[in-house]
């Protein structure tokens, strides 16, 4: 009982601190005389635009069960509009060619959402390549063949020893020019090569954490090295490396914001563009941060689900 009330107390402290921080932000913006204009943000995420439907011929309008039907005076097929947001004629009206009949609202995706989609594309494509690169580099890292091992070590050390931003510039300006890569490809290449080096280390430590007896048992049953890896070692290593892998995937999503420097319109670049047209930098960057959080949050939730599913054999 004593313990319980203590826990409750500390939870209350947590809530208070969060509220305090929120107030701090609010007070901070007050002190620099900032007017919040949150209402400007949603249109950059999603907006509606009304288009007017006009009559293609002379005729008369009837409204039946929520549908607008225009029958032609000259025997053309009648026009039926099933969905509209704003009716501009009434039942029995005569209409002429070109008369406005109704307004239909179209949903438009705003620039921030396009940025989010681009970030998602960049991350997913890079993730696939990074996992492939990381798997092979990790296996090469523990290979008994010195050529493979040294190649892998060189790759890992080079990548981990230089900043991602510099690598993106090298990929875009040097490799991209030599191989004639477009921005997106150069960005994906830089991100996957970068993340691959970290995944390689995760794969290596994952495989090495599996007891050597597993490999011996698999080989003693007649499996060759590849069969033993694929059927026995990697599935176990996979499960064990899920938490660090999840961290790496989340880093990838966040690191993808750096490719905005080579003019890929990802979420971050979209944010910059929206700031310059709204003059509402605080709101935009908070919205952008929230959108990144949605991506990374969804990913870590999905991986936690997967971990739960795989824990059946524990």
């Amino acid at each position: 009982m004593e313990k319980q009330s203590h826990l409750l107390l500390w939870k209350a402290v947590f809530v208070l601190i969060i509220i305090g921080l929120g107030f701090g932000i609010y007070a901070g913006s007050k002190s620099i005389d900032y007017t919040w204009r949150w209402e400007r943000i949603p249109q950059y995420i999603i907006n509606t635009e009304a288009t007017t439907v006009r009559s293609p011929f002379d005729g008369s309008a009837t409204i039946e069960k929520g549908k607008l039907i225009v029958t032609s005076d000259y025997g053309d097929d009648p026009l039926v509009i099933k969905k509209f947001d704003n009716l501009l004629v009434s039942n029995g009206d005569l209409v002429f060619e070109g008369d406005p009949l109704a307004e239909v609202e179209n949903w438009n995706i705003g620039p921030l959402t396009w940025g989010l989609v681009m970030t998602l594309q960049l991350s997913v494509v890079s993730l696939v390549f990074a996992v492939v690169i990381g798997l092979f580099a990790g296996l090469a890292r523990i290979s008994s063949n010195p050529a493979l091992r040294y190649l892998s070590i060189t790759y890992i050390e080079l990548i981990r020893g230089t900043p991602l931003l510099v690598q993106i510039f090298i990929f875009y300006f040097f490799i991209g020019t030599v191989l004639d890569l477009d921005r997106f490809t150069a960005g994906v290449a830089a991100l996957s090569v970068f993340t691959g080096a970290y995944i390689a280390e995760i794969v290596r430590s994952g495989i090495q954490s599996i007891s050597p007896g597993q490999m011996e048992a698999a080989r003693s049953l007649g499996m060759n090295y590849v069969q033993a890896m694929v059927n026995v070692i990697l599935p176990q290593a996979f499960k064990r490396t899920l938490p660090p892998m999840a961290g790496q995937f989340i880093n990838l999503i966040k690191d993808s914001s750096l490719v905005s420097v080579i003019s890929i319109t990802d979420l971050t670049k979209a944010g910059r563009e929206v700031v310059s047209s709204t003059f509402a930098p605080f709101e935009v960057w908070f919205a952008v941060a929230l959108m990144y959080l949605v991506l990374t949050g969804a990913l870590s939730w999905a991986i936690q689900r997967l971990e739960k599913r795989l824990s059946a054999s524990d």
């Binding site: 007896g213 048992a217 003693s220 049953l221 026995v232």
Partner: peptide, 15 residues
């Protein structure tokens, strides 16, 4: 090795 089965002290079952 297909012809020669082996049983280990530490079982080494695939977990």
């Amino acid at each position: 090795r297909e012809e020669v089965g082996m049983v280990f002290q530490s079982f080494n079952l695939f977990p």
